[in-house]
Amino acid sequence: MIDKSSTLLLSDPPQEASREQQAVSKLYISQVCKNFQLKGHKTLCAVSSVSFEVQQSEICILLGPSGCGKSTILRMVAGLESISAGRILLDRQPITGPGRDRGMVFQSYTSFPWLTVKQNVEYGLRVNGHSRAERQDITNHFIDRVRLTPFKDAYPDQLSGGMRQRVAIARALANGPEILLMDEPFGALDPETRWQMQELLLDIVRMENMTVLMVTHDVDEALFLADKILFLSSHPGTVRERIPAPLQNSAKPTTKESMYEIPEYINLQKKIMHLMREVTYDPTS
């Protein structure tokens, strides 16, 4: 797998075109592979030759069935997982490890339980040596953005799941990242809370002009949030389809109800569900 992809990289004709792409893209991912070492010298190819770009202020969603390697791709961008082959560039700089230019929100609740909401949001600024006054301003701004100001002195155990994920979002954004990486951030929430969180996220991302790369397997969530959907298929994970959203950026619907009044969204939903059925093994058929 590694050999094949590296030769691809050298001989691929669209290499010149992609260099241009590379110059304008916020995040540039080219021919990325991930192999996991298994027992007995076997390797598992989790991600095979994945290429895509994310533009400034774009919300890009990785959608696909379980085992399609979408989380692995996100973790490689975060620098939490090494890259077996290919290149990942953020602002034309190759990624070498985790860094504060890429904020991450996990599915599990990762608020530090011994710190208050305020101290959690402040954490990144503190370890990066920002002054007290600066920390205060930025922290208050983002706590306000996620509407947690009345709870800024509460501890995470006193908050609901949705509120904890808002702390995680504020904490990631307060650190001033270039891109926000989200790994099924609302996967553990109640459906009604998930709704509210999606609308809140859309609002914040637009106000902060943030670029987002998000993983989900919730079709509805992908439709509502995305400017661009990358549909992945599994074994090994590859990009099956690149789907631009019917409406982009500020033209996107801001509530769930209004989205389903637009026929293009309903058609796209059907299309994605067909894709999902195609790539998923169905034991009943």
């Binding site: 504060r100 996990f106 011994w114 990066n128």
Partner: peptide, 27 residues
């Protein structure tokens, strides 16, 4: 100590010493 806490701190730009002092120890 949950790995997610450590990984969160890494993505927030904390170094090894910081993570040991401000995440692993209190957790």
């Amino acid at each position: 100590v949950p790995m997610e806490l450590v990984e969160t701190a890494k993505t927030l730009g904390a170094g090894k010493g910081s993570i040991l002092r401000t995440i692993i120890f209190p957790a």
